[in-house]
Write a protein that binds this DNA or RNA. Structure first.
Length: 190
DNA sequence: AGCACGATCTGA
DNA sequence: CAGATCGTGCTA
């Protein structure tokens, strides 16, 4: 069993965000299998976290975060971008991990075609990777443990030494304690 | 019903 | 550094 199951997504969001680094994100689309190693994540930790979408309670848009762990929370922002999150922790605990970047493993050409662009920056950035993998609103609420369309597999064990924790990106509106929190995880340059 | 703005990216 | 571009949620 290499596909990560529900149990993987149940622990604390910070722990899961860290654990997702080095895992393999797989997307089936148009008969192809696109994949990449996750190299950057951010944790959004429930109602208490003023940077989290669920901070002001449950709404139609963020309802997936209130559901069971192991599902995809995909939402639309800036009038043009989709962002991919993995729901974590127990039901009714609205937490999720934002997937910010992957290192392409398979399907590079298809990703380039979808992005209409080339180069190593292809899938660095939460909106870019959604474009490259053809991820949109239709995958909001998707079960990540079914082994269909979209899932995450075990891949590499990244030593803790190689993982840096930094403040999260694009959340200037949040309270200082949450702005400063080191809840973004990145792999140091290979 | 109207409005301000966003977990972003690009090109100048 | 501004522009693209629109769904969402807050205010009235």
């Amino acid at each position: 069993m290499i596909i990560l199951n529900k149990t993987f997504y149940e622990p604390g969001t910070l722990k899961v965000a860290r654990a997702l680094i080095g895992k393999k994100l797989v997307r089936q689309i148009g008969g192809l299998e696109l994949s990449g190693m996750i190299i950057e994540t951010e944790a959004y930790c429930g109602k208490e976290d003023s940077a989290c979408h669920a901070h002001r309670g449950k709404t139609k848009r963020n309802s997936v975060m209130f559901g069971p762990p192991g599902h995809a929370y995909v939402y639309f922002t800036y009038g043009m971008h989709y962002l991919l999150n993995m729901v974590t922790e127990a039901e009714d605990k609205p937490c999720a991990v934002l997937i910010r970047a992957i290192l392409p493993i398979a399907g590079l050409e298809e990703m380039e075609a979808r992005r209409k662009r080339k180069g190593p920056e292809l899938t660095k950035g939460p909106a870019k990777l959604c474009q490259a993998l053809g991820i949109d609103k239709s995958l909001n609420g998707w079960n990540l443990t079914s082994g269909d369309q979209l899932w995450v597999e075990d891949y590499k064990n990244i030593p803790a030494k190689l993982i840096t924790a930094t403040p999260r990106i694009g959340i200037d509106y949040a309270k200082e304690q949450h702005r400063k929190a080191l809840w973004r995880f990145v792999v140091k340059a290979e």
